[in-house]
Design a protein around this nucleic acid. Structure first.
Length: 920
DNA sequence: CTAGGGTTAG
């Protein structure tokens, strides 16, 4: 073979590279090398390109680096550019960077290679750093460098820089370049700005498949399912053939219940184009079926994927987890172990997410162990997932421990911790961690704010923490976020400041389902049932569909108003729409039936004891308590302990109030002490109110007063009101005065202090004092909350005030009252004048007593309802003692069952007796 | 330059 010239070796070498015969190129080089021919810069650059493009010749490339150094060719710009490109391609960014920094001169290609390297290695921050440096050094970008910079802005959601880059693009005229425009479409998609994405797409002069894919995925990522489908139709109309990327995006756009019908159509198209074996498409389809609540279809799809990759496994595991099937998720983890696939951090994150419920705590701990032994414990994402898992299992101690041992935190770590405090009802800790987070220099995002606000639930929380944070929100500009505005609204509502929540609600530019639901729930839970129902109806009129939250709120409103029929109708709708199995809805339904006096209905829909959540137990106990079945309340409490459910502070409020209504003083006290000692539930103000009421009602006023002085939390208005009411019942003028003074001090606008005190004075015949109190009320502009009663007859609610004559059947009503009075006087009724609170003669007193609203409602109810039916009457204030006695007599005289609900409890009257045994 | 799985959420 004749001796070849240097140039012929060069030509051969570059020929092999052009022909994509990379291994041949390397072999040729060795042949030349053993013949002792010294390579020139061009050869080494070609060789590096071969190593680069083959994707496999890593060690060969690094050996070439040695030759470059040996022959002093680092100063050759072609060689050093090729070397840089080689290192960047294989992800050796340290070497790539070194190469770049040491280059004698750089062209735009060198800059681009470096940026592409960082981009493909998942470091968009570095890409933007380099871009800024390019700007400083006056280097002009080409289409490739612009594309990678634009895509990095999108990934980092850096909208400010993104718009700057756009202006640079326009200046250079590269906005007409297809690749650059494609990148811009995706970037705006990442910002959630589909309008600008579409604008760029619309003005493009020529589009390729990637352009279509970019706009479709921009719509898909931002949940604009219909728009992505519209684009797809337009694309098909122009005879552009979709590829697997197009269809993947479309499938993920349809990944929810509402869009499943379209998704299934796309599934058919996938099959038509023969793309149903593309793994990426299979995986998106799997997720789509799972997210639409069709887990079985997802499982079938998973089984049928011939060559599952790790993402298939991870997706399936996540699907099981999201559908609450943690055993299946963990089973999959075991199956994965038997394959060739190697699990990654996403695998474990999904497994942890599946274990994020109290029942799966042990499994969660096991995964924690696996992560530790697998050496993944320092992974940020897994640390975050662990915090979440422990927080959702209710073990904040472990969540905090994980947090403290993590080598680094991001905003998600803090949010998971604060969110955990929120869910576990620890508002002070949520606030404390929020403060520490800011001291630590970590920027809050909207989720942080939503979590912190969500942890507040009392008027104290609102005053001390909620309002200062509201100020912080206004200052930092978070109030422009619609999630934040909704959670502000919810906070004010939950803490009982309905005026403020109303104000925020009215100011909302768009009222979404969450805003409406918050208004319904807050009004229902704060005793404004009618307002709640109005919101409920208006929400529907505005075209929104009810969800779990709306139905729970609607039921709570019916419960508040005691509207059994409406509640039942709503419950029927709920069943029809398939919401009855939702835990919150089921609990709200139970609560509604309980508060409407239908304990049998409560028992009918109650979950079986073994999987009965604590909330259901609490509703059951408080239901029994409200109806005076204190034995059943106590039995339920013991049953709850037997099946291993943990009582919480609400359980004890219900239990103590059962003892209270049953007059079980010793038992109530015993529960109060065991609550702290045995169950570790710290006594809160609600428990103390129960105890004060318990002691006071039974006449142990001295002990009640001592308890108030010594109890672990400061007394509030409820405590003093209860003590005042007890001293009225047991006629203790001195204590009444004390309690009334405290009450007026705490809440000067409250009418009950004046009213109750004047009652005690009236009983004792101290009419001057009564007048004095009346004058004070007048001068302080305080009005007695008017008592009213209502009764529903023939689907129409009739409301009566004291001495009300506004009803169209007034004549008959008063006639009926006279009859009743005669009838029961014959069988022993004697009016109890101590409930007549004006200083008049005895006849007037009796006349006033017979003007009480509950008596008017009773007379009307008896007029217009069939004989033998149960009469249901409601009162906004505690029932008067004389009326209670009248109801008993009437129930026997006319042989009717009467159910009276006041704000505290139910009275079931039947055959001359009341279920409260005259103790209320 | 486009596409599939994961942690925080009213």
């Amino acid at each position: 073979m004749p001796q070849r010239s240097e140039s012929s070796w060069s030509t051969m070498l570059s020929g092999y590279v052009r022909a994509e015969m990379y291994v041949k190129a390397v072999e040729l080089f060795y042949e030349m090398w053993v013949q002792g021919i010294e390579p020139n810069g061009f050869m080494l650059a070609s060789l590096l390109t071969a190593c680069n493009r083959s994707g496999k010749l890593v060690s060969q490339g690094t050996q070439v680096h040695g030759l470059v150094v040996k022959y002093g060719l680092l100063s050759d710009v072609f060689v050093s550019s090729a070397l840089l490109h080689f290192y960047a391609t294989y992800g050796f960014m340290f070497d790539a960077r070194k190469c770049f920094e040491e280059m004698p001169e750089r062209n735009v290609v060198s800059w681009t290679s470096l940026m592409v390297g960082y981009s493909t290695n998942g470091d968009p921050e570095e890409v933007l750093e380099i871009y800024q440096r390019m700007r400083r050094e006056g280097v002009r970008c080409n289409q490739n460098s612009f594309s990678v910079v634009i895509s990095s802005c999108g990934l980092l959601e850096d909208e400010l820089l993104g718009r700057q880059v756009l202006s640079h693009v326009v200046v250079t005229g590269l906005d007409y370049n297809v690749s650059v425009a494609n990148a811009l479409i995706s970037m705006f998609g990442c910002f959630g700005n589909v309008e600008d994405a579409y604008f760029i797409f619309k003005v493009m002069e020529e589009r390729d498949t990637i352009s279509w894919n970019s706009i479709i995925s921009a719509y898909s990522h931002n949940q604009y399912c219909e728009d992505s489908l519209k684009c797809f139709r337009w694309m098909r109309h122009g005879n552009v053939k979709p590829d697997s990327t197009t269809l993947s995006s479309l499938v993920s756009a349809c990944s929810n219940v509402d869009n499943l019908k379209w998704g299934m159509g796309i599934h058919d198209i996938v099959i038509k184009f023969g793309l149903d074996s593309v793994i990426c498409v299979c995986n998106t389809l799997l997720t789509m079926y799972s997210e639409s609540g069709r887990l079985e279809d997802a499982v079938r799809l998973f089984r049928d994927i011939p060559e599952k990759d790790l993402i298939s496994w991870n997706s399936m595991m996540a699907s099981f987890g999201q559908n609450g099937e943690y055993q299946n998720a963990l089973g999959l983890l075991a199956d994965l172990h038997g394959t060739n696939e190697i699990s990654n951090h996403v695998t474990f994150a999904s497994a942890l997410a599946a274990c994020s419920c109290p029942e799966a705590l042990i499994e969660g701990k096991t995964i924690h162990g696996l992560i530790f032994r697998g050496g993944r414990i320092e992974h940020l994402l897994l640390g975050n997932a662990l915090i979440t898992m422990y927080a959702k299992c209710g073990v904040m101690r472990y969540a905090k421990q994980v947090f403290q041992t993590m080598p680094q935190h991001d905003v998600v770590s803090w949010n998971a911790l604060i969110g955990g405090h929120m869910e576990n009802e620890e508002p002070q800790k949520a606030l404390q961690d929020f403060k520490w987070m800011r001291e630590d220099g970590m920027c809050a995002n909207y989720i942080t704010i939503v979590n912190v606000l969500g942890s507040f639930s009392t008027s104290e929380d609102l005053r001390n923490n909620g309002m200062p944070i509201h100020a912080y929100i206004e200052m930092t500009g978070f109030e422009s976020d619609s999630y934040v505005r909704n959670s502000l609204l919810t906070m004010y509502a939950k803490c009982g400041d309905l005026n403020s929540s109303n104000f925020i609600f009215e100011q909302l530019d768009t009222k979404n389902i969450v805003s409406w639901n918050a208004m319904v729930a807050a009004n229902a839970h704060h005793g404004c049932g009618e307002a709640a129902l109005k919101f409920f109806a208006k929400m529907h009129q505005s075209g929104l569909e009810f969800d779990h939250f709306s139905f729970s709120g609607g039921l709570a409103a019916c419960a508040n108003l005691g509207l059994l029929e409406e509640g039942q109708q709503l419950h029927n709708i709920i069943i029809k729409k398939g919401f009855e199995s939702d835990l919150h809805v089921a609990n709200a339904a139970m609560d509604m039936y309980g508060k409407c006096g239908e304990m049998n209905e409560v028992l009918r829909i109650l979950p079986t004891p073994s999987n009965r959540p604590r909330l259901s137990w609490n509703i059951l106990i408080s239901g029994f308590s409200r109806h005076g079945y204190y034995n059943k309340a106590r039995d339920t409490f013991h049953h709850m302990l037997q099946v291993g459910a943990q009582p919480n502070h609400v359980t004890f409020v219900a239990l103590l109030s059962a003892c209270n209504h049953g007059g079980l003083v010793e038992e109530g006290l015993a529960h109060f002490y065991s609550m702290v000692k045995e169950f570790g539930v710290p006594p809160a103000i609600e428990h103390c109110v129960c105890i004060v009421d318990l002691l006071g009602r039974s006449g142990r006023l001295i002990e009640a007063e001592i308890f108030v002085k010594e109890m672990p939390v400061p007394a509030n208005d409820h405590v003093w009101r209860s003590l005042l009411s007890a001293s009225r019942t047991h006629n203790n003028l001195e204590l009444s005065r004390k309690a009334a003074n405290h009450l007026i001090e705490l809440d000067p606008s409250d009418d009950s202090a004046y009213v109750l005190l004047s009652n005690v004075c009236a009983i004792n015949g101290r009419w001057e004092d009564v007048d004095d109190i009346r004058r004070k009320m007048k001068s302080n502009k305080i009005k007695k909350k008017p008592g009213c009663s209502w009764v529903k007859v023939n689907n129409k609610v009739s409301t009566f005030g004291m001495g009300d004559q506004s009803h169209p059947q007034t004549l008959q009503i008063y006639g009926k009252l006279t009859d009743l009075r005669k009838m029961i006087k014959e069988v022993g009724y004697v009016p109890d004048m101590s409930f007549a609170l004006h200083d008049t003669d005895e006849e007037d007193k009796e006349h006033n007593l017979w003007n009480h609203s509950e008596k008017l409602a009773l007379a009307f109810g008896l007029l217009d309802t069939p004989e033998g039916s149960t009469l249901r009457i409601f009162k906004n204030l505690r029932v008067c003692g004389d009326c209670h006695s009248v109801y008993k007599f009437v129930s026997k005289a006319v042989q009717r069952r009467i159910v009276l609900r006041d704000p505290y409890r139910f009275h079931h009257f039947s055959n001359g007796k009341c279920s409260c045994c005259d103790y209320w």
